[in-house]
Simulated assay, not measured.
Amino acid sequence: MKKAFETGIQQAKNAIENAEYILLGGGAGLSAAAGIEYGGKRFKENFASFIEKYRLTDMYSSGFYPFPTQEERWAYWAKHILINRFEPGATKLYRDLLRLVNGKNYFVMTTNVDSQFEKSGFAFDKVFEVQGNYGFLQCSTGCHNKVYYNESLVKEMVEKTVGCKIPSELVPTCPVCGGNMDPHLRINQYFVQDEKWYEWNQSYNTFLKESGGKKLVFLELGVGFNTPGIIRYPFEQMTYHNKNATLIRLNKENPEGAKENIDKTIAFTEDMQEVVSAIME
């Protein structure tokens, strides 16, 4: 195992060193590996009263819980957003990833919504958060094409939460239609793709066009099968169609890939921080 790991690390080093372009794909497993976990001790410590009252089991499934009132719903979501978006600073794993690709022509496609790439120093215009961002709100029915930064509101909600409820006057309402607001997350067909979203989408497509046929490394990080059509499957397909591409996959649970790419894929199931640190040595 150690020999195979060392061989894989050397192959990954060579691929990254020789790459003309690097496309990073960040999934939920990346932030979990960085310490932003949605279950276990971290969940229990932050949501004890919600667990007792609603029998919640983890932060991911809790996002779909049918809270009886908007006051209760936003008491939960404010805490969720605070501890995953605003409280954490840049984590070591994300900072190390930046060091790994710094000086290269890179772009980031991520389904994560916690802004860790931005916090860690990745260029703002090179990070496409395709599924949204915890730091913003949107109309729950997408009645207009705008999102709203929510940091001060979220912090006030958490500060004034009593008995798993926020004061009614803090419940956000849409400034256009007067309806409910949602966190800016792709949870249904009403997800708002504002002007900035389309700019990032265009930048992503431009990067793909420019890197076509070049020495391109797909660095896939903690991407499972929750939304495989956004990162995992496209990375597989683009690796297959580019003879100069290499896919580096860091994934403890799902390292397997398309058999057609077996000679172009370097997969690791070890701790992600360990792998990234070893590649940088």
Rank of each mutant, 00 (worst) to 15 (best):
W200A: 10
G29D: 04
F86P: 08
A33Y: 07
K79C: 07
G25K: 04
N150A: 11
V176M: 09
E151Y: 09
F47P: 06
I9C: 01
N201V: 09
E156I: 02
F124T: 15
N133R: 12
N201H: 13
Q131T: 06
T110I: 05
S62T: 11
Q131V: 02
Y149A: 11
E71Q: 15
V223Y: 01
N14G: 09
L100E: 06
V176E: 14
P88S: 03
Q116T: 04
C143D: 05
T141V: 00
G213K: 13
Q131I: 00
E236P: 04
G35F: 01
Y76I: 07
M280L: 14
L250Q: 06
E87S: 14
K214T: 13
N133P: 05
N112F: 01
T7K: 07
Q70T: 01
G224K: 09
N14Q: 14
F268Q: 14
N254H: 08
G26T: 04
Q138E: 01
F124H: 15
V276C: 00
W74M: 07
E253H: 07
F207Y: 10
G29P: 03
G26I: 04
R249M: 05
L170P: 07
N105G: 03
Y60M: 15
T69V: 05
I279T: 02
N14H: 14
G29R: 04
Q273D: 15
A28H: 06
E270A: 03
V275T: 07
